[in-house]
Amino acid sequence: MSIQCLTFQYRESGEPFAPPIVALHTLGKSAESWDQMAAILGEKYRVLALD
Protein backbone atom coordinates (compact mmCIF):
# COMPACT_ATOMS: atom_id res chain seq x y z
CA MET A 1 0.00 0.00 0.00
CA SER A 2 1.28 3.47 -0.89
CA ILE A 3 0.69 6.55 1.26
CA GLN A 4 0.73 9.99 -0.36
CA CYS A 5 1.40 13.20 1.52
CA LEU A 6 -0.52 16.26 0.42
CA THR A 7 0.24 19.86 1.29
CA PHE A 8 -2.52 22.45 1.59
CA GLN A 9 -2.31 26.19 1.95
CA TYR A 10 -4.85 27.78 4.26
CA ARG A 11 -5.71 30.90 6.21
CA GLU A 12 -6.36 30.51 9.92
CA SER A 13 -8.16 32.70 12.44
CA GLY A 14 -9.59 32.28 15.92
CA GLU A 15 -8.18 30.55 18.96
CA PRO A 16 -6.12 27.37 18.34
CA PHE A 17 -8.16 25.25 20.78
CA ALA A 18 -11.63 26.50 19.79
CA PRO A 19 -13.97 24.15 17.87
CA PRO A 20 -12.79 24.10 14.23
CA ILE A 21 -14.67 25.11 11.10
CA VAL A 22 -13.22 24.23 7.68
CA ALA A 23 -14.24 26.73 5.00
CA LEU A 24 -14.07 25.86 1.29
CA HIS A 25 -14.27 28.46 -1.45
CA THR A 26 -15.98 28.10 -4.81
CA LEU A 27 -14.24 27.61 -8.13
CA GLY A 28 -12.38 30.74 -9.19
CA LYS A 29 -12.13 32.15 -5.65
CA SER A 30 -9.49 31.86 -2.93
CA ALA A 31 -9.29 31.51 0.84
CA GLU A 32 -9.36 35.32 1.02
CA SER A 33 -13.06 35.21 0.16
CA TRP A 34 -13.64 33.98 3.75
CA ASP A 35 -11.73 36.81 5.50
CA GLN A 36 -14.75 38.86 6.61
CA MET A 37 -16.75 35.85 7.76
CA ALA A 38 -13.69 34.33 9.46
CA ALA A 39 -13.24 37.53 11.48
CA ILE A 40 -16.76 37.08 12.87
CA LEU A 41 -16.64 33.30 13.31
CA GLY A 42 -13.14 33.55 14.80
CA GLU A 43 -14.65 35.00 17.98
CA LYS A 44 -16.00 31.54 18.90
CA TYR A 45 -14.34 29.11 16.47
CA ARG A 46 -11.03 28.26 14.88
CA VAL A 47 -11.55 28.92 11.16
CA LEU A 48 -9.40 27.14 8.58
CA ALA A 49 -10.05 28.47 5.08
CA LEU A 50 -8.44 26.12 2.57
CA ASP A 51 -6.97 27.58 -0.57
Rank of each mutant, 00 (worst) to 15 (best):
I40A: 05
C5L: 11
Y10P: 14
E15T: 07
R46Y: 02
R46G: 11
R11S: 13
G14Q: 08
E43S: 07
E12R: 11
C5K: 14
P19I: 03
L41C: 14
E43I: 03
A31T: 01
I3A: 09
A39P: 05
F8N: 03
T7D: 08
Q4E: 08
Y45G: 01
Q36P: 14
L24K: 01
F17T: 15
H25E: 04
L27F: 12
I3R: 11
L50V: 15
A49W: 00
W34K: 06
L6V: 06
S13K: 08
R46M: 09
L27R: 15
L41Y: 01
E12G: 08
S2D: 07
I3D: 04
S13Q: 12
L24G: 00
A38H: 02
V47R: 07
A18P: 05
F17H: 12
P19R: 01
M37E: 06
K29S: 12
G28Q: 13
C5Y: 07
E32M: 06
L27I: 15
A31Q: 02
H25G: 10
R46K: 12
P20A: 13
I3G: 04
G42M: 08
K44N: 07
W34F: 08
K29C: 15
I40H: 06
L27E: 12
E32R: 11
R46W: 01
K29E: 06
V47W: 09
S2R: 08
V22R: 10
A31Y: 00
A38D: 09
Y45R: 06
A49I: 00
I40N: 03
L48S: 10
E15K: 11
I40D: 01
W34E: 07
V22K: 02
Q4C: 10
L48R: 02
R11N: 14
K29G: 15
D35V: 13
S13A: 09
P16N: 01
E43H: 09
F17V: 13
L50S: 05
E15R: 07
T7K: 10
L24Q: 00
S30R: 02
I3C: 04
E15H: 11
